[in-house]
């Protein structure tokens, strides 16, 4: 273990680079996956129980956005204007398609009613092209629970980032 203070400039630059490479590689892998799946957010975590028993809270979902012709029964992730959190629900109706833009109606498997209440005021359908982030192509149960903890206890985020940074800077294994 060595102090940061008595390092040569090149040694210091190397240590900072190691840390930056860890972060940037994670970011670029994410972006690479975005490009491959053509989705701005190719991995999402299920935050609510509205899709039980298909998906539980904390399941990690992999999205694919290259099938634009979404069929009834597919589970899609969509964004609603002026809401930060994406929603994972199943397609129950489709309108248009072909020459006219495809529009979808969704519903949570575990919900009594369809999603019209969740959409923006005045919106009765999702536009496939603009609102949907991708269809669920695969999932891993439970591993996303960490992010639920992180979003429920935001200070955990700073703590984790801080510890990671310190470890990389101080360690030379």
């Amino acid at each position: 273990m060595l102090g940061v203070a008595n390092m040569q400039p090149r040694q210091l630059a190397t240590q900072i680079l190691n840390f930056a490479l860890v972060l940037s590689t994670a970011f670029m892998l994410w972006k690479g996956l975005s490009v491959a799946s053509d989705s701005p957010s190719p991995i999402v975590v299920v935050l609510s129980g509205s899709m039980e028993p298909a998906f539980q809270r904390g399941d990690l979902l992999f999205l694919w956005n290259r099938w634009q012709d979404t069929q009834i029964g597919e589970v899609v992730v969509y964004n609603v204007k002026d809401r930060d959190i994406p929603i994972v629900h199943r397609v129950v109706r489709r309108f248009g398609g072909g020459k006219t833009p495809l529009r979808l109606l969704t519903k949570g498997d575990n919900n009594a009613a369809d999603d019209t209440e969740l959409y923006a005021p005045g919106q009765s359908h999702l536009t496939r092209k603009d609102d949907v982030v991708g269809s669920v192509a695969g999932f891993i149960p439970f591993v996303g629970y960490v992010t639920i903890l992180l979003s429920e206890y935001p200070w955990l985020k700073q703590a984790m980032l801080g510890i990671m940074g310190l470890m990389v800077i101080l360690q030379r294994e």
């Binding site: 630059a13 680079l17 930056a20 490479l21 972060l23 940037s24 590689t25 970011f27 670029m28």
Partner: peptide, 9 residues
Amino acid sequence: GYSAVVIAG
């Protein structure tokens, strides 16, 4: 290393 990091940044 730093040019890779700059691109990511």
